[in-house]
């Protein structure tokens, strides 16, 4: 049976999502062809009006566009950017990104919940980028999010799954798909997130700055698949939780 997952009525086989940030035609090609990406993030603020530069032209039609609201500092601004994306013809998917800090670019969970609620009411498929906090994640579920996208570590830090323990809590408690976003600096970290039970990972810088884009894209595809298979096989959870001993500890008890 094919291992698929669904978001906003669309079914995906790939669990590798290309983030925005650093874009080039070569990067998109590598992500689609070699990493198998079926969803690509698009920073609305970076879309160009100049014809030759329009990133929309680079993205194959069978790939789902995920416009993001980067640059928004409040829920209100995020909502405006999302509406603009829809008007630009980017579809109904939107990644809500709200930051009130230019240094760490950490998401503001409270504003994100507000924006998610408004946009879900307007029929958007909302994927909120968030700091991995259980209460906020639950609020996002209530607000109508289609998935939650917790960060793994601060953007640009290349520190991998620094928030691992908190990601695990969300993976254990939240029923929606969880896409691990931000901080994945290498394929092994993507693999680890998938082993833990993430539905997908989002990667940009790690791929964009690689020496050989197609090779790195392929490495990510393999890592994501390996991690996913490990999770499905049951090993992932068993390893995290500790295996049961082959000889029961309580085997000496009589009666």
């Amino acid at each position: 049976m094919q291992d698929t997952w669904t978001l906003g009525g669309r079914t995906f086989t790939s669990r590798f999502i290309l983030g925005s940030g650093k874009y080039s035609l070569k990067l998109i090609e590598a992500a689609v062809r070699d990493a198998g990406a079926e969803m690509i993030t698009l920073a609305v603020r970076r879309t160009n009006t100049k014809e030759s530069e329009n990133i929309l032209d680079y993205i194959p039609k069978n790939v789902t566009l995920l416009p993001n609201t980067s640059g928004a500092r409040t829920a209100e601004e995020a909502v405006r950017i999302a509406r603009l994306a829809r008007e630009l013809g980017c579809g109904d998917f939107v990644k809500v990104e709200i930051m009130r800090d230019s240094k760490y670019l950490l998401p503001d969970n409270a504003e994100t919940v507000k924006a998610t609620s408004t946009l879900a009411d307007e029929g958007f498929v909302v994927l909120p980028y968030m700091y991995p906090d259980l209460y906020a994640a639950r609020d996002l579920v209530k607000a109508g999010a289609a998935a939650v996208m917790p960060l793994a570590s601060p953007i640009g830090s290349n520190r991998g799954l620094a928030a691992k323990d908190f990601l695990q809590i969300l993976l254990d408690e939240i029923e929606l798909p969880i896409i691990v976003d931000a901080g994945i600096g290498r394929p092994s970290q993507a693999c680890e997130a998938m082993e833990m039970g993430a539905s997908a990972v989002m990667v940009n810088t790690a791929l964009a700055t690689a020496g050989d884009l197609p090779l790195m894209a392929n490495a990510f595809r393999q890592a994501v698949e390996a991690g996913r298979n490990a999770y499905r096989s049951g090993l992932g959870r068993v390893l995290t939780r500790g295996a049961s001993a082959s000889d029961p500890l309580t085997g000496f008890l009589r009666d």
């Binding site: 650093k22 874009y23 080039s24 920073a43 609305v44 603020r45 970076r46 879309t47 160009n48 100049k50 530069e53 640059g71 928004a72 601004e77 405006r80 950017i81 603009l84």
Partner: peptide, 11 residues
């Protein structure tokens, strides 16, 4: 390098 002509939205 990747030249970027715009990175901001007036909101």
């Amino acid at each position: 390098l990747q030249p970027v002509l715009n990175d901001s939205l007036y909101v």
